[in-house]
Design a protein around this nucleic acid. Structure first.
Lengths: 219, 219
DNA sequence: GCCCGTCTCCCCCGTGCGGTGGAGGCGGAT
DNA sequence: ATCCGCCTCCACCGCACGGGGGAGACGGGC
């Protein structure tokens, strides 16, 4: 008997992309594109109908994005397919969101055809999970820029940085003053300086900036 | 001419693991283990000496953990190797940290030998990035347990969660009101509820709690 | 039927916060 | 000797915020 082929569903709002993927995948023995969807909502229903082994899911789609569609599929099917999130990766921060949603892997749209095929095969047969340059580039944005995660961090004086750290712990000006051993008025000055340099409107925005820039980290 | 082999460095505090990996990898044509390290610090120096193509890096190691070692390697070498983080995955939340550190992939220690080999090959030749069941399980922990990443998230109503998300974007009550289409007084009520449920004293602490609990994540 | 949770909105009040515009001291750089 | 950056602190002001009350409407559950 022949080996059961890997059944694939494509979800992408661009017909050309779907066609390209279909051509590449259908040319491969053992791979079979069984369905297509142009929206996230359509993807959910198509997957429910065809129950494929693998779904190639675009992130940006009308109605429901790929992330939500992934969530819905994984949470509503008893034996959900492996979902590979496909992205063009421009400035996407979808990666972590997709991971949380339960995506089995990532694929860069500009990936080589052979990588695409290998990705699908690998995801289909083992519970391994493919990743592309997308993450490397994203990771690079986080790691190689480590010497300069916050553009403004260099401009914060020692005291200001200290005050910002205390702010990010949820302390009031008076508490910060007591903690670092200065007067409340002094803390106010430093806070004002931090707000000015970070471009924040209030302490909440300053704390957000601290998190988003990596100046401080969760956990 | 023969193809240049993939040069590999193993970093793991358990000798047995290193040996096992070496046996598996050395048996493969085109793969060559050129060095081993038992600590994170050692890993950094060994990598600097041998300049391998791929590093298999354990997470938990004495002196310096795999994450920090990864950071150091990637930030100090001009042409750093691909670093694959190896984990036993018990309750690790290292995955995101490793990604941020610039890891090229993940591998589960209990992965099949053939998966290991294929992972190394793939990481070495393309900029694709391997993942294992580790992430699937971890993702499951985050997605299926989505009702419970923050202990209090389950207790936040839909509106309250929405308001908290807007708070975490640095918006004032008035701005949130305009954005979600309700009156300012309503937003005040929701904010009060959020503060009560999160145990926060003010909106800043609420936003901090949102970040620390993973309710929202930095880009 | 009733209750309870949710969403919606109102009042009043105190205050922490942020904005403005200062001042004095201290050290390094020029 | 002078200037500048940083740290320290002050007074005044307006306001968004948070606390403490409530109230009406809708829905589902008992």
């Amino acid at each position: 008997m022949t080996v059961r082929p890997v059944r694939i569903v494509l979800a992408d709002d661009e017909r050309m992309v779907r066609t390209a993927l279909r051509v590449i995948l259908d040319a491969e023995p053992g791979l079979e594109v069984v369905g297509e969807a142009a929206t996230g909502a359509e993807a959910v229903s198509v997957v429910r109908s065809f129950l494929p082994d693998v779904v190639l899911m675009d992130v940006r789609m009308p109605e429901i994005d790929g992330i939500r569609a992934t969530e819905q599929i994984l949470s509503t099917l008893a034996e959900p397919p492996r979902i590979v999130v496909v992205t063009t990766f421009e400035n996407d921060s979808y990666v972590y969101d997709a991971l949380r949603a339960g995506a089995a892997g990532f694929l860069l749209k500009r990936a080589a055809a052979e990588d695409l095929v290998q990705a699908v095969r690998l995801v289909a047969r083992s519970d391994s999970l493919l990743f592309p340059a997308a993450v490397r580039e994203l990771a690079a944005l986080h790691s190689t820029q480590k010497p300069a995660p916050p553009p403004w961090a260099a401009k914060l004086t020692g005291r200001e940085a200290e005050v910002l750290r205390q702010m990010a712990r949820g302390l009031t000006n008076a508490e910060i003053a007591a903690r670092i051993g200065v007067g409340p008025a002094t803390v106010k000055s430093h806070v004002a300086a931090v707000l000015a340099k970070t471009g924040a409107r209030d302490r909440t925005q300053a704390v957000i900036a601290a998190y988003e820039s990596g100046f401080i980290r969760p956990k």
